[in-house]
Amino acid sequence: GSMEQGFLPKGWEVRHAPNGRPFFIDHNTKTTTWEDPRLKIPA
């Protein structure tokens, strides 16, 4: 929902695949990933 959306880094969006699995869109680089960007520790 909109709650989890608010925690994503700037430029990211979460969508759900037809099977219900969430995936993440990085509008900054125009890419998608199954990995939650929030789980990655910034270098």
Score class of each variant (00 low, 15 high):
Gly1His: 10
Gly1Leu: 13
Gly1Asp: 12
Gly1Thr: 12
Gly1Ala: 13
Gly1Phe: 12
Ser2Pro: 12
Ser2Leu: 12
Ser2Asn: 11
Ser2Arg: 09
Ser2Phe: 13
Met3Leu: 13
Met3Pro: 13
Met3Glu: 09
Met3Asp: 13
Met3Ala: 13
Met3Arg: 12
Glu4Thr: 13
Glu4Pro: 14
Glu4Ala: 14
Glu4Trp: 15
Gln5Met: 15
Gln5Lys: 11
Gln5Pro: 11
Gln5Ile: 14
Gln5Asp: 11
Gly6Asp: 10
Gly6Arg: 10
Gly6Trp: 14
Gly6Phe: 11
Gly6His: 11
Phe7Glu: 15
Phe7Tyr: 11
Phe7Ser: 15
Leu8Thr: 00
Leu8Pro: 00
Pro9Gln: 04
Pro9Trp: 07
Lys10Met: 12
Lys10Tyr: 11
Lys10Pro: 13
Lys10Val: 10
Gly11Arg: 01
Trp12His: 02
Trp12Gly: 00
Trp12Thr: 01
Trp12Cys: 03
Glu13Cys: 06
Glu13Arg: 02
Glu13Ala: 02
Glu13Tyr: 06
Glu13Lys: 01
Val14Met: 15
Val14Thr: 05
Val14Glu: 09
Val14Arg: 06
Val14Ser: 04
Val14Asp: 00
Arg15Phe: 07
His16Asn: 08
His16Tyr: 15
His16Val: 15
His16Thr: 14
Ala17Cys: 15
Ala17Ile: 05
Ala17Pro: 05
Ala17Lys: 06
Pro18Phe: 08
Pro18Lys: 10
Pro18Tyr: 08
Pro18Arg: 09
Pro18Val: 08
Pro18Leu: 09
Asn19Ile: 03
Asn19Asp: 14
Asn19Ala: 01
Gly20Glu: 04
Gly20Trp: 00
Arg21Phe: 07
Arg21Lys: 10
Arg21His: 07
Pro22Ala: 09
Pro22Tyr: 08
Pro22Asn: 06
Pro22Trp: 07
Pro22Val: 14
Phe23Lys: 04
Phe23Tyr: 15
Phe23His: 03
Phe24Ile: 01
Phe24Trp: 10
Ile25Gly: 03
Ile25Asp: 03
Ile25Trp: 07
Asp26Ile: 01
Asp26Leu: 00
Asp26Met: 01
Asp26Thr: 01
His27Glu: 05
His27Asp: 04
His27Trp: 14
Asn28Cys: 13
Asn28His: 06
Asn28Thr: 07
Asn28Gln: 06
Asn28Glu: 07
Thr29Ser: 08
Thr29Cys: 12
Thr29Lys: 06
Lys30Pro: 00
Lys30Ser: 10
Lys30Ala: 11
Lys30Asp: 10
Thr31Ser: 08
Thr31Pro: 02
Thr31Trp: 07
Thr31Asp: 04
Thr32Lys: 10
Thr32Leu: 15
Thr32Asn: 05
Thr33Asn: 02
Thr33Ile: 05
Thr33Met: 05
Thr33His: 08
Thr33Ser: 07
Trp34Leu: 05
Trp34Ser: 04
Trp34Cys: 05
Glu35His: 14
Glu35Tyr: 14
Glu35Gln: 13
Glu35Thr: 10
Glu35Ile: 14
Glu35Gly: 06
Glu35Val: 12
Asp36Arg: 01
Asp36His: 06
Asp36Asn: 02
Asp36Lys: 03
Asp36Ile: 02
Asp36Phe: 04
Pro37Met: 01
Pro37Gly: 00
Pro37Ile: 02
Arg38Tyr: 03
Arg38Thr: 05
Leu39Thr: 12
Leu39Pro: 08
Leu39Gly: 12
Lys40Pro: 13
Lys40His: 14
Lys40Val: 11
Ile41Glu: 12
Ile41Met: 12
Pro42Ser: 10
Pro42Ala: 13
Pro42Phe: 10
Ala43Asn: 11
Ala43Asp: 12
Ala43Tyr: 13
